[in-house]
Amino acid sequence: MLAYAEGKSFVHALSGATKFLFFLFWSVLAMMTYDTRVMLVMAAVSILLFAVSRTRFEDVSFIFRLLLLFMALNLLAIYLFAPEQGVAIYGTRHVILQGIGRYTVTAEQLFYEANVFLKYCIMAPAAIILMVTTHPSEFASSLNRIGVNYSVAYAISLTLRYIPDVQREFQDISRSQQARGIELSRKASLMKRLKGASAILMPLVFSSLERIDVISHAMELRGFGKKKRRTWYSGRPFKVLDLIVMLVGALLLVLGLWITFRDGNRFFNPFV
């Protein structure tokens, strides 16, 4: 559902480390800023990049809907727990609709939540692009290149390697235990379902331990952990394009932060 898809766009041509670094800059800026103008530009760039990467929407529609749902819940929760947050931030109070008790609708609150919405519009496409245009085996080398210890980076890569196998094994075990009578559907009580889950987890844990044993011996026999450093088969050398993209990313970060904090406040305030 969020798997790597081969492609020939300029985003695909970048090395994984470049994309990772750019994504990091992009996320930092998106998290720091509440400057609506900056965010509008960023959201536009994110969506543009998504289009340029030629990611097929059908491939990611599931995750997209999931994010949409999560976003709606988040926006609702902000309103439920802090209906006056916008007023507190912007210092004015323009009531649009008088509600019950503390739940009024103010222009400030709407504007604040629109800003949060914009953040999603920046982050979601960027994260999806990173996932679908980077081969999983390039992730480990990218992480290593930006300074993560290679054992940790490789552990992540191995996890990706085993996810499909463990998924299939889980399904097989779950069915054979269902045949023996465990009930996982809503028909059974919570206690029973928990007991049923443990009847699946125990075999899964034991067979995963077997796997770990085999793979760690195989890795040791082939010299894993011998040196402090290692090279990567799937790592791509940086090209001019990579350097440009990283530079642009860094410049955008600085520029965005400068625009945001120029007036000493990270919020853009249209109400004064």
Binding site: P136, L158, R161, V214, R230, T231, P237
Partner: peptide
């Protein structure tokens, strides 16, 4: 069980990666 890499090529190269051979 002994397949370490995410692709066949990566798995074959595993020992060279650990020896820091250039890509």
């Amino acid at each position: 069980g002994q397949f370490v890499g995410l692709t066949a090529g990566e798995d074959i190269a595993f020992v060279l990666e650990n020896d820091c051979i250039p890509t």
